[in-house]
Protein backbone atom coordinates (compact mmCIF):
# COMPACT_ATOMS: atom_id res chain seq x y z
CA UNK A 1 0.00 0.00 0.00
CA UNK A 2 1.57 3.29 -1.03
CA UNK A 3 1.20 6.85 0.14
CA UNK A 4 -0.99 7.87 -2.82
CA UNK A 5 -3.55 5.18 -1.93
CA UNK A 6 -3.53 6.16 1.76
CA UNK A 7 -4.01 9.78 0.72
CA UNK A 8 -6.95 8.87 -1.54
CA UNK A 9 -8.51 6.73 1.21
CA UNK A 10 -8.11 9.49 3.78
CA UNK A 11 -9.77 12.01 1.42
CA UNK A 12 -12.63 9.57 0.82
CA UNK A 13 -13.15 9.21 4.58
CA UNK A 14 -13.37 12.97 5.01
CA UNK A 15 -15.68 13.54 2.06
CA UNK A 16 -17.94 10.94 0.36
CA UNK A 17 -17.68 12.93 -2.89
CA UNK A 18 -13.90 12.42 -2.89
CA UNK A 19 -14.11 8.67 -3.70
CA UNK A 20 -11.99 8.43 -6.86
CA UNK A 21 -12.11 5.77 -9.61
CA UNK A 22 -8.49 4.87 -8.75
CA UNK A 23 -9.51 4.21 -5.14
CA UNK A 24 -12.48 2.08 -6.19
CA UNK A 25 -10.22 0.11 -8.55
CA UNK A 26 -7.92 -0.68 -5.62
CA UNK A 27 -10.76 -2.17 -3.52
CA UNK A 28 -11.52 -5.86 -4.02
CA UNK A 29 -15.03 -7.21 -3.77
CA UNK A 30 -18.55 -5.90 -4.24
CA UNK A 31 -20.08 -2.70 -2.79
CA UNK A 32 -16.76 -0.82 -2.44
CA UNK A 33 -18.51 2.50 -1.68
CA UNK A 34 -20.53 0.95 1.17
CA UNK A 35 -17.38 -0.71 2.53
CA UNK A 36 -15.45 2.57 2.54
CA UNK A 37 -18.46 4.18 4.26
CA UNK A 38 -18.10 1.79 7.23
CA UNK A 39 -14.68 3.27 7.99
CA UNK A 40 -16.00 6.80 7.46
CA UNK A 41 -18.89 6.21 9.87
CA UNK A 42 -16.63 4.60 12.47
CA UNK A 43 -14.21 7.54 12.38
CA UNK A 44 -16.94 10.18 12.43
CA UNK A 45 -18.94 8.58 15.18
CA UNK A 46 -15.79 8.23 17.32
CA UNK A 47 -15.08 11.96 16.96
CA UNK A 48 -18.67 13.14 17.39
CA UNK A 49 -19.04 10.96 20.51
CA UNK A 50 -15.85 12.51 21.85
CA UNK A 51 -17.22 16.02 21.29
CA UNK A 52 -20.67 15.17 22.71
CA UNK A 53 -19.03 13.79 25.86
CA UNK A 54 -16.85 16.90 26.26
CA UNK A 55 -19.52 19.54 25.50
CA UNK A 56 -22.85 18.32 26.97
CA UNK A 57 -24.23 21.82 27.71
CA UNK A 58 -23.42 23.14 24.22
CA UNK A 59 -25.12 20.04 22.80
CA UNK A 60 -28.24 20.57 24.93
CA UNK A 61 -28.50 24.20 23.83
CA UNK A 62 -28.01 23.44 20.13
CA UNK A 63 -29.97 20.20 20.07
CA UNK A 64 -28.55 16.80 19.08
CA UNK A 65 -28.87 17.23 15.30
CA UNK A 66 -27.54 20.75 15.10
CA UNK A 67 -24.64 19.86 17.41
CA UNK A 68 -23.86 16.95 15.04
CA UNK A 69 -23.79 19.31 12.07
CA UNK A 70 -21.58 21.85 13.87
CA UNK A 71 -19.27 18.99 14.90
CA UNK A 72 -18.97 17.85 11.27
CA UNK A 73 -17.85 21.31 10.25
CA UNK A 74 -15.41 21.49 13.18
CA UNK A 75 -13.97 18.07 12.27
CA UNK A 76 -13.49 19.24 8.69
CA UNK A 77 -11.73 22.47 9.67
CA UNK A 78 -9.85 21.14 12.72
CA UNK A 79 -9.28 17.37 12.34
CA UNK A 80 -7.53 15.65 15.24
CA UNK A 81 -3.75 15.79 14.98
CA UNK A 82 -3.19 13.14 17.62
CA UNK A 83 -4.75 9.77 18.47
CA UNK A 84 -5.34 10.94 22.05
CA UNK A 85 -9.04 11.67 21.66
CA UNK A 86 -9.58 12.95 25.18
CA UNK A 87 -7.39 15.86 24.07
CA UNK A 88 -9.55 16.54 20.98
CA UNK A 89 -11.81 19.58 21.32
CA UNK A 90 -9.46 22.26 22.67
CA UNK A 91 -10.12 24.41 19.56
CA UNK A 92 -13.90 23.97 19.68
CA UNK A 93 -14.60 27.18 21.67
CA UNK A 94 -12.58 29.36 19.27
CA UNK A 95 -14.25 27.60 16.34
CA UNK A 96 -17.70 28.44 17.76
CA UNK A 97 -16.64 32.10 18.25
CA UNK A 98 -15.74 32.27 14.57
CA UNK A 99 -18.68 30.25 13.20
CA UNK A 100 -21.03 32.87 11.75
CA UNK A 101 -24.30 30.81 11.95
CA UNK A 102 -23.86 30.87 15.76
CA UNK A 103 -23.20 34.59 16.14
CA UNK A 104 -26.69 35.05 17.59
CA UNK A 105 -25.50 33.03 20.64
CA UNK A 106 -22.48 35.07 21.85
CA UNK A 107 -22.18 33.09 25.10
CA UNK A 108 -21.70 29.68 23.41
CA UNK A 109 -17.94 30.03 22.92
CA UNK A 110 -17.38 30.79 26.61
CA UNK A 111 -19.71 27.96 27.59
CA UNK A 112 -17.53 25.63 25.49
CA UNK A 113 -14.42 27.05 27.25
CA UNK A 114 -15.97 26.18 30.60
CA UNK A 115 -16.81 22.67 29.40
CA UNK A 116 -13.32 22.12 27.99
CA UNK A 117 -11.70 23.19 31.28
CA UNK A 118 -13.41 20.24 33.00
CA UNK A 119 -11.72 17.29 31.18
CA UNK A 120 -8.52 19.32 31.17
CA UNK A 121 -8.67 19.50 34.96
CA UNK A 122 -9.70 15.82 35.17
CA UNK A 123 -6.52 14.67 33.37
CA UNK A 124 -4.13 17.28 34.84
CA UNK A 125 -1.08 16.24 36.87
CA UNK A 126 -1.55 15.21 40.50
CA UNK A 127 -0.28 17.53 43.23
CA UNK A 128 -0.92 17.50 46.96
CA UNK A 129 -1.77 20.91 48.43
CA UNK A 130 0.01 21.86 51.65
CA UNK A 131 -1.82 21.15 54.90
CA UNK A 132 -3.99 24.14 55.79
CA UNK A 133 -4.81 24.19 59.50
CA UNK A 134 -6.18 27.53 60.73
CA UNK A 135 -5.80 26.21 64.29
CA UNK A 136 -2.03 25.83 64.09
CA UNK A 137 -0.09 29.08 64.34
CA UNK A 138 3.19 27.42 63.39
CA UNK A 139 1.67 25.82 60.27
CA UNK A 140 0.14 29.13 59.19
CA UNK A 141 3.40 31.02 59.69
CA UNK A 142 5.22 28.47 57.57
CA UNK A 143 2.52 28.67 54.88
CA UNK A 144 2.68 32.45 54.49
CA UNK A 145 6.44 32.19 53.89
CA UNK A 146 6.16 29.28 51.45
CA UNK A 147 6.45 29.77 47.66
CA UNK A 148 3.10 28.69 46.25
CA UNK A 149 1.63 28.37 42.76
CA UNK A 150 -1.48 27.12 40.99
CA UNK A 151 -2.60 23.53 41.21
CA UNK A 152 -1.85 22.01 37.74
CA UNK A 153 -5.58 21.49 37.13
CA UNK A 154 -6.61 25.12 37.82
CA UNK A 155 -8.10 27.31 35.08
CA UNK A 156 -9.42 30.85 35.57
CA UNK A 157 -12.16 31.86 33.11
CA UNK A 158 -13.64 35.33 32.59
CA UNK A 159 -16.87 35.75 30.66
CA UNK A 160 -19.26 38.60 29.90
CA UNK A 161 -22.05 35.99 30.34
CA UNK A 162 -23.31 33.95 33.32
CA UNK A 163 -21.79 30.75 31.89
CA UNK A 164 -21.81 28.80 35.15
CA UNK A 165 -25.56 29.43 35.57
CA UNK A 166 -26.07 28.49 31.92
CA UNK A 167 -24.05 25.32 32.32
CA UNK A 168 -25.93 24.34 35.49
CA UNK A 169 -29.24 24.96 33.72
CA UNK A 170 -28.32 22.57 30.90
CA UNK A 171 -26.47 19.84 32.77
CA UNK A 172 -27.87 19.90 36.31
CA UNK A 173 -31.46 20.99 35.63
CA UNK A 174 -31.10 24.30 37.53
CA UNK A 175 -33.22 27.29 36.42
CA UNK A 176 -31.75 29.32 33.55
CA UNK A 177 -30.48 32.80 34.43
CA UNK A 178 -33.13 35.53 34.07
CA UNK A 179 -32.37 38.66 32.01
CA UNK A 180 -31.64 40.71 35.17
CA UNK A 181 -29.20 37.96 36.32
CA UNK A 182 -27.17 38.22 33.12
CA UNK A 183 -23.87 39.43 34.64
CA UNK A 184 -20.22 38.88 33.76
CA UNK A 185 -18.55 36.20 35.85
CA UNK A 186 -15.12 34.91 36.72
CA UNK A 187 -14.91 31.17 37.35
CA UNK A 188 -12.38 28.74 38.61
CA UNK A 189 -12.27 25.15 37.36
CA UNK A 190 -9.97 22.73 39.16
CA UNK A 191 -9.67 19.26 40.60
CA UNK A 192 -9.95 18.84 44.36
CA UNK A 193 -8.94 15.29 45.21
CA UNK A 194 -10.45 13.27 42.35
CA UNK A 195 -13.38 15.61 41.73
CA UNK A 196 -13.53 18.40 39.16
CA UNK A 197 -15.11 21.49 40.69
CA UNK A 198 -16.36 24.76 39.20
CA UNK A 199 -17.30 27.87 41.11
CA UNK A 200 -17.53 31.60 40.76
CA UNK A 201 -14.72 33.61 42.32
CA UNK A 202 -15.05 37.18 43.66
CA UNK A 203 -12.62 40.03 42.94
CA UNK A 204 -10.52 39.86 46.16
CA UNK A 205 -9.84 36.12 45.76
CA UNK A 206 -9.36 36.51 42.04
CA UNK A 207 -6.68 39.21 42.51
CA UNK A 208 -4.79 37.05 44.98
CA UNK A 209 -5.13 34.00 42.74
CA UNK A 210 -3.75 35.96 39.79
CA UNK A 211 -0.83 37.02 42.00
CA UNK A 212 0.06 33.34 42.40
CA UNK A 213 -0.17 32.51 38.69
CA UNK A 214 3.59 32.92 38.69
CA UNK A 215 4.58 31.22 41.94
CA UNK A 216 4.96 33.66 44.82
CA UNK A 217 4.92 34.07 48.59
CA UNK A 218 1.84 35.32 50.44
CA UNK A 219 3.88 37.49 52.82
CA UNK A 220 5.14 39.41 49.75
CA UNK A 221 1.66 39.64 48.24
CA UNK A 222 0.50 41.57 51.30
CA UNK A 223 3.02 44.30 50.39
CA UNK A 224 1.88 44.70 46.79
CA UNK A 225 -1.88 44.05 46.59
CA UNK A 226 -4.24 47.01 47.32
CA UNK A 227 -6.26 45.27 50.02
CA UNK A 228 -6.16 45.39 53.81
CA UNK A 229 -4.22 42.66 55.59
CA UNK A 230 -7.50 41.32 57.01
CA UNK A 231 -9.05 41.10 53.52
CA UNK A 232 -5.95 39.41 52.14
CA UNK A 233 -5.80 36.94 55.01
CA UNK A 234 -9.46 36.01 54.42
CA UNK A 235 -8.84 35.55 50.68
CA UNK A 236 -5.72 33.47 51.32
CA UNK A 237 -7.68 31.23 53.67
CA UNK A 238 -10.30 30.73 50.94
CA UNK A 239 -7.71 29.78 48.31
CA UNK A 240 -6.04 27.35 50.70
CA UNK A 241 -9.33 25.83 51.85
CA UNK A 242 -10.35 25.22 48.22
CA UNK A 243 -6.94 23.60 47.59
CA UNK A 244 -6.14 25.88 44.65
CA UNK A 245 -2.48 26.39 45.54
CA UNK A 246 0.38 23.95 45.92
CA UNK A 247 4.02 24.20 46.91
CA UNK A 248 5.96 25.69 43.98
CA UNK A 249 8.51 22.86 44.14
CA UNK A 250 5.72 20.51 42.91
CA UNK A 251 4.89 22.61 39.86
CA UNK A 252 7.50 21.47 37.34
CA UNK A 253 6.40 18.06 36.10
CA UNK A 254 8.73 15.16 36.65
CA UNK A 255 10.49 13.53 33.69
CA UNK A 256 7.83 10.80 33.66
CA UNK A 257 4.94 13.22 33.29
CA UNK A 258 6.45 15.06 30.34
CA UNK A 259 5.06 14.07 26.97
Amino acid sequence: MNSALQHAFRRALEDPRAVTPQLLAAVRGNHPVARIAVYRNNARSALVSTLRAAFPAVERLLGEDYFGAVSEEFMRQCPPRSPVLNEYGGEFAAFIDGFSPLHGFPYLGDLARLEWARPTAFHAADASPPVFDPGSRAALLSLVEQRLGWHPSLRLLHSAHPILRLWQSQVEGAPAPLPDEWHPATLIVWRRGWHVEVQQILPPERELLEYFENPGVFAEATLTLPRTPAQLAASFATLMRLQLLIGAHHINPTEEDKP
Binding site: M1, R10, Y39, P79, P83
Partner: peptide, 22 residues
Protein backbone atom coordinates in the same frame (compact mmCIF):
# COMPACT_ATOMS: atom_id res chain seq x y z
CA UNK B 1 -3.47 -1.02 10.59
CA UNK B 2 -2.94 2.65 9.88
CA UNK B 3 -4.81 5.67 11.20
CA UNK B 4 -2.71 8.78 10.57
CA UNK B 5 -1.80 10.38 7.26
CA UNK B 6 -0.55 13.90 6.46
CA UNK B 7 -0.58 14.62 10.19
CA UNK B 8 -4.33 14.02 10.59
CA UNK B 9 -5.69 11.19 12.76
CA UNK B 10 -8.62 9.26 11.27
CA UNK B 11 -10.04 7.74 14.50
CA UNK B 12 -10.37 4.23 13.07
CA UNK B 13 -8.11 1.26 12.31
CA UNK B 14 -7.73 1.43 8.53
CA UNK B 15 -6.79 -1.47 6.24
CA UNK B 16 -3.39 -2.05 4.68
CA UNK B 17 -2.67 -4.09 1.58
CA UNK B 18 -0.76 -7.34 2.00
CA UNK B 19 2.38 -7.18 -0.12
CA UNK B 20 6.19 -7.11 0.24
CA UNK B 21 6.51 -3.33 0.15
CA UNK B 22 3.98 -2.92 2.96
Amino acid sequence: AWSSHDGAYQADLLPISFDRQT
